[in-house]
Design a protein around this nucleic acid. Structure first.
Lengths: 173, 173
DNA sequence: CGGATATATTTTGAACCTAAAGTAATGGAT
DNA sequence: ATCCATTACTTTAGGTTCAAAATATATCCG
């Protein structure tokens, strides 16, 4: 048994006893790569949305939710689906109303509730942007084969599961 | 040859002629999953950094760069490494100076250049946070085996390559 | 030397984002 | 009927982010 530089102890090629704090080096490298990849793509999408349509990603994301809801959506539902705070939704909605892409009206049965709906121009604008958006993503992912995509989907599902487990455990507080 | 519902044409099990706009459905699903995963982890790290240390992720990231540079870093270099705008670096640096974590001083050879360095308290605070940060990531990634991690590293490297190719081609404008 | 150009940083204005406080309306429970 | 808790949303204050304009300094060229 040999003492290693980091203070842990080497048993064989597969076993390392954690008598010293684990360093999580590979996890951190993977996290960094994941973050870099995502930011690279997201930044490019933001840039293109801005230069082609003078639009922002949060507004696009909100319209994407609304596009699938023929009867509009309640603000709370939008907040949940986009996983952003209610106050944030209010701000984005205000701007989309200002541009004429959506409307906001109180629900008839409960005056606390506000329902937003796409206007025809909003829908038209969104459809045009969504088509381009799909092409942009398609182009950025073009080197990945169907097998790569499937494998990534699976591994990311595992990761998501692991993260959710950690969250529900109050993991490491 | 059969007309399909989406307007494209079926040849055999492997070939589909794109006379209709491609829909990139799988690419979009993968992108959505990637984004969701990353945001889930990032949000949790932000939350824990805030509740445990009253600190923010951008400030942590800046200190992480500075921690490895014994002689400090020039602001432009920080901007490049963090991949954020120079104006953004200025704002974060101002706050870190306010908290006493770093210092800023003009370079002797070129008075345009500002060099930032960690203070001893800054270094101490960062080291404490970095240890916890590693544990948090380690816990969130705990369900992934070494094989999963290696495979993800490889697939994400492929994706990164694909994205960079697309960017350099001015892909889809 | 002097002027044009380039570089490094800061400032400004606008958008996004959150947590927490505030407002308004609903739905009990007594 | 009235109080109380809950719910839905908005407002506020503070931090992050960018693009573009402003500032200051350095460098190059004639």
């Amino acid at each position: 048994m040999t003492e290693l530089p980091d203070g842990s102890v080497w048993i064989d090629a597969e076993t390392k006893i954690a008598d010293a704090p684990a360093d999580h080096r590979d996890d951190l490298r993977l996290w960094l790569r994941l973050l870099t990849c995502t930011n690279l793509i997201e930044t490019e999408i933001r840039r293109k949305l801005q230069s082609h349509f003078d639009f922002t990603l949060p507004r696009f994301d909100l319209l994407a939710q609304l596009d699938r809801a023929e009867d509009g959506l309640v603000l709370g539902e939008v907040s949940k689906r986009l996983m952003v705070s209610a106050g944030n939704v209010t701000a984005i909605v205000d701007r989309l109303i200002g541009n004429g892409h959506i409307t906001r009206s109180p629900a008839p049965h409960d005056r606390r509730v506000q329902i937003i709906r796409m206007t025809p121009e909003g829908r038209r604008a969104f459809r045009a942007m969504a088509g381009q958006h799909g092409d942009w993503i398609g182009d950025m992912f073009d080197d990945l084969g169907p097998g790569d995509i499937e494998m990534l989907m699976g591994l990311l599902a595992n990761l998501k599961g692991s993260v959710r487990r950690s969250l529900s455990n109050g993991g490491a507080s």
